[in-house]
Amino acid sequence: MFGFLARRGLLMIPILLGVSIVIFITIKIIPGDPVASLLGPTGTPEARAALEDRLGLNDPLPVQYFTWLAHTITGDFGTSIARQTTVSPMVFDALWNTLILTAAAAALALVLGVVIGALTALRRDGLLARIGNAFALVSISVPQYSVGLLLIIYLADDAGLFPVSGMYSPNGGGGFGDLMNHLILPAVTAALVPAGIIARMFRSSVLDVMGMDFIEALRARGLSERRILWHAFHNTTPSLLTVAGLQIGYLLGGVVFVEAVFSWPGIGQLVYLSISQRDLPVIQAGVLVSAFAFVLLNLIVDALHGLIDPRVRTH
């Protein structure tokens, strides 16, 4: 098991390097003149040359890349163009907030998806199963930004059940209850699409497993249906994990819309605000830490996978 994890961990390194290269290249291909924007309108050609030199823009590209990488690895993402502050604390605060929202949405999506998937697989012709199927189909097609907006109108504004935006109320004291209250609507909105996908995948996975020979073998050994179902669900966990892992990636990206709508101070909102300000260092840092978090989460999913499925460990 340890060896398995170590192997997987080592595999992450080239992927992270690749990620950094992709981000570095996007910095380089961006149209526009970062030096001019740093320099302001009063810059003389001499000042410009000096700044270019200081920024290392005259070095060969690989040197620039490694300089940039060295900074990035130490958590130095440069300075925000719009705010003139260092990017790192901003981005890591936002990442933490995004992870809270992602975790809540993932948990919700998993519960909803498994319940609906199991229901639609085991009671195929019931009314509830039909409703479940319809829900799964519609929810995977939903534009989250508009669902978020509509939830705001009807549940937050009209019904007054939940706060409209933000993470904490200005005068709410910032407690756990306050956070939960603010978390519900964005989490529900973010969970819709992954819940539908998990439901569909889990449904077909339950049907697959229930059609496998060992289910009949278990029945022939005299096991009760409940016990057989338990075996079956156990056997769906590897594929459930795979889907869940993919969906976490989806969530980390998809929350951009949700955060923008609910003003949730996460990576998504940070990136969204930075787009209008063309604050590229912040956008890049945001994408980079998200990708890093995603790769780490995948490692965790892999570890769980190995824990659950002995076939993965040995291969």
Binding site: M212, D213, F214, E216, A217, L218, R219, A220, R221, G222, L223, S224, H231, H234, N235, T237, P238, I308, D309, P310, R311
Partner: peptide, 23 residues
């Protein structure tokens, strides 16, 4: 159910398929 496995047992065709792969 009490008869199955105890008094009549089945050996299915495919040994790979008839074992729970995760246990």
């Amino acid at each position: 159910r009490g008869v199955r496995g105890a008094r009549i047992a089945l050996v299915p065709q495919d040994p790979t398929g008839s074992l729970d792969p995760l246990r």
